[in-house]
Design a protein around this nucleic acid. Structure first.
Lengths: 205, 205
DNA sequence: TGTACATCAGTGAACGCGCGTTCACTGATGTAC
DNA sequence: TGTACATCAGTGAACGCGCGTTCACTGATGTAC
């Protein structure tokens, strides 16, 4: 905010934040270098001192998104405390909370065409987030007799898919196609039924 | 293909098909009116005889997608034969098959920013597809004692979310973030575990 | 503390480009008589 | 069957626009002595 004169001082991060705002309310297509520069109060040429181009700026936004996502999931998991089950469910809620509270990051990560493979930094953070889910699934799985355990990667993929599907289909405020449940309810009940199917929680009688 | 001279004969549908090809291999952003016209072998102004603008053309592609989707799901469901369970699982497989075989339609429907609410025709087809899932869930649900049934809309939403999530996360060939299972395996096992959780299939001992 | 200078992060003008869209037009088609 | 004419579906040129990007430049900052 403070007038800084000729030098901005923190333009790189200001551009990232301008991008977040732009894509959060106009979609990944709505964002342009020119508008990001304008929003940061700088000429259209300035961003090129910090990013090679449009692609690189979005990729940085996605990278920060994955980093934040991984942090939040780790925090929610809290090393499996107080119980592995409670921690597992907290991770699910954190997934939804992230999508809701950080729409710009979420869009950059999952709906902008950016792919984790395109940069090692991006990949690293994406894997860190994924590992939290894997770890949570693994700890829960350990309660089952070995012959009744699904492969951990499969377990984690099921949960990630359901979470992601709920966000995409029901958590964005799209006109039409509504359902009389909140995303949170859908995730809690869906994962609950799934875990019961694995024998990880009591069949409720 | 045939040279038709001045009049194309079926330009409207030719534009739809050109759009399908374009978005299937360059994403929803990659498609432009100009390129669609070119692909259809027609001047850049011609499309405006058939569509008010870019939005309307994509919306028509999405509408046809929902219609085809609904047809395929209905065909797969086959009125619940031979058994409601088998029919239900066939619907799941059809979901994945549709995403795989009709990527252009899938992208237009779910990744292009088109929203069913923006046109009654679109909405109608989207609802028709949704009703198949609802009906399949309802028929299966009927086997459970009433006090153990989840609301049908919730059941359907869980299954739709898992299917959609699997497509988005694992069925597109994105570099990085791979998982050692096919989308089909993931869906079959995931839905299987979920149904077991509902008590709809035997706990395998 | 002061000065010279290298480095850095901005500017502003300009570019080429392709897009969406409009418009007056024209060639082809179908129909009434 | 032939002709006149209305209608329709194309053309091609043109527009304004905004975008991504480059480039020579310049103002600010930091550092060596």
């Amino acid at each position: 905010m403070g007038k800084r004169g000729y030098h901005h001082g923190n333009l790189r991060q200001a551009l990232v934040e301008a991008t977040l705002d732009l894509i959060a309310d106009k979609g990944p297509t709505g964002f342009t270098m020119a508008e990001a520069a304008k929003a940061a109060g700088v000429s259209a040429a300035a961003p090129y001192r910090h990013f090679a181009g449009r692609e690189e700026l979005i990729a940085e936004v996605a990278r920060q998104g994955y980093a934040l996502f991984a942090d939040l999931l780790e925090y929610a998991y809290n090393d499996g405390k107080p119980t592995v089950l409670a921690a597992f469910e907290a991770v699910g809620r954190a997934y939804l909370a992230f999508a809701r509270k950080h729409p710009g990051h979420y869009i950059a990560m999952f709906e902008s065409g950016v792919t984790p493979g395109q940069s090692p930094d991006l990949m690293r953070e994406a894997e860190r987030a994924n590992r939290v889910v894997i770890r949570a699934a693994e700890a829960l799985s350990a309660r089952l007799p070995p012959d009744k355990r699904p492969p951990t990667a499969m377990f984690a993929a099921h949960v990630a898919a359901m979470s992601h599907g709920i966000v995409e289909l029901y958590a964005r405020a799209k006109p039409g196609a509504r359902v009389p449940f909140t995303p949170e309810e859908l995730l809690e009940t869906g994962v609950g039924i799934y875990l019961r199917g694995l024998g990880l929680i009591e069949p409720d009688c």
